[in-house]
């Protein structure tokens, strides 16, 4: 299974990453090697086998619907790169 340059650029776009031109081929080769290795799973017959997403037989438990104190706004905003009027701030320019 060979991953193409287009595949790499496509997944980079989906993952919101810019790639430098000189890195694209290196990533293409790395990803091809890994996907090639992962392809070994084709040897396994999985017909009728249900997928496992979580190991333990946990069920969703809802907490009581009681009001509780949340974190202070100041604390939540302390890591904001930019903030304004008690909100996270990002520039409002949209892509043309």
């Amino acid at each position: 299974m060979q991953i193409t340059k287009e595949d790499v650029l496509h997944v980079a776009k989906l993952g919101k990453l810019y790639l430098k031109d000189e890195k694209v081929d290196k990533f293409r080769k790395n990803l091809s090697d890994i996907v090639q290795y992962a392809k070994r799973l084709d040897e396994v017959d999985v017909s009728g086998i249900s997928p496992t997403a979580a190991i333990l037989p946990l069920q969703n438990v809802f907490r009581k619907d009681e009001a509780a104190k949340s974190m202070d706004r100041e604390k939540i905003l302390q890591n904001a790169p930019e903030k304004s009027y008690g909100c996270f701030w990002v520039r409002n320019k949209v892509v043309e």
Partner: peptide, 23 residues
């Protein structure tokens, strides 16, 4: 991130991600 995005992307999900969960 790219590998994970690839195995979850349309057309590859069943072949990779679902298969891995079955194994």
């Amino acid at each position: 991130i790219m590998l994970g995005t690839y195995v979850l992307s349309s057309g590859y999900y069943d072949a990779y991600y679902k298969k891995a969960q079955q194994v």
